[in-house]
Design a protein around this nucleic acid. Structure first.
Lengths: 205, 205
DNA sequence: ACCCTACTTGACCGATCGGTCAGGTTCTGC
DNA sequence: GCAGAACCTGACCGATCGGTCAAGTAGGGT
């Protein structure tokens, strides 16, 4: 292996084994599911042995934890920034932008959590993500939100996760000028969440 | 077992063993995933032995097929009725109604297919459902549909599937006057699909 | 009585599961 | 050169996987 300057910070260096394994595992978890993915599959796909996977990660659950944690940390930051913001309406626009950035960067992580949270209850990282999503829902819908508001939020969340992962390689095949997707997402998500936002002080008619 | 009139058609009679197993398997497939569900789990949950499951169904894949087929048949009928209809705009409204009925009746089946189709390619029933969804997408979006139109369709489809299954017992907890959900779904889905419909003869600007 | 069909089951099969462990290789600091 | 950490691996463990098979039970028709 070519020598790297002794103090290389964790950047610019080519991906470590742990990173490769995390990325491979994420792809498998998102498409086949956590329960349906074996450590052997992950090891084979990444070009290592099963023992190597278990050397880098204490267990299959621990691997899931390390895979999902960065996404959840990021979502937590976004939500906190939104909650702390004083300006109501302006911060909502920025929140939607932040959220779409989050969607695009962590779509596999979100898809994994969104579609398997129910069956993975008890795993710390899943429970943590669960309370975050509930908090997000409550924050966006306030207290007296109508059923329609809740459904709007659910469709935006689950719909985006599906479209960006399963729908992408299945319906659209290739179409994807990237920022065209981003803009379309922005329009649709904003449209879905807007009524929720506007209702704020008039939801009880 | 109490005697039933010799010619009981497949109705009014209490659920057969096969029906129980299908229902149990569907619930497991939808929440844990096909790959993550074992025949033993299904058998235990339904109160039979694993051998009994394999007596009624030739294999795990065959069980999946029998579980999903009714939903796909129904979707095919809806789509064909929509395609054959002469009136463009009026039939779209009826299609959305049909589709929402379909969503509510077969939400577990749709959720199972939507989130696992990619990893189950090759299984006949899955491939059949796949071409159906693509046909549905093409029919609704026509040829020159924009990226936004495609994304609208994807979000409506995936969002509804998620909200009615995972989101239901996870975000909304209990709120569910049933027809209130139906009406809210109608509003949101119509709103999501409306632009797609309107574009029909003006999509190329 | 008889048999036949429908149904259910436990024992069993080879393969694979998540996980442990001891040993090997390679690199680094001294 | 050498000790030790870091990394990778095959052999192995008990449990469980999907699936087969023979035996057993219960009813229905004759």
């Amino acid at each position: 292996m070519p020598p790297e300057s002794s103090t290389t910070p964790p950047a610019l260096t080519r991906p470590s084994t742990g990173d490769e394994l995390r990325a491979t595992a994420l792809a498998q978890f998102a498409s086949i599911g956590f329960a349906g993915t074996s450590l052997q599959q992950i090891a084979d796909a990444a070009g290592y042995s099963k023992s190597s996977v278990l050397y880098h990660f204490a267990s299959k659950e621990a691997l899931l934890g390390e895979v999902l944690t960065p996404a959840i940390d990021r979502l937590e930051v976004i939500l906190n920034r939104f909650v702390d913001s004083p300006d109501e309406t302006a911060s909502r626009r920025r929140f939607v932008d932040d959220f779409i950035d989050f969607l695009l960067e962590f779509r596999l992580e979100l898809h994994t959590f969104i579609n398997q949270a129910q069956s993975l209850r008890g795993i710390p990282v899943i429970d943590r993500a669960g309370v975050l999503i509930v908090r997000l829902s409550d924050t966006l819908c306030h207290d007296g939100a109508s059923t329609e508001d809740r459904i709007r939020f659910g469709i935006a969340l689950g719909g985006a996760a599906y479209t960006l992962v399963a729908g992408m390689t299945f319906l659209n095949k290739d179409i994807a000028p990237a920022d065209e997707i981003r803009q379309a997402l922005s329009v649709v998500i904003t449209e879905l969440l807007a009524p929720v936002a506007v209702h704020t002080s008039q939801s009880r008619k």
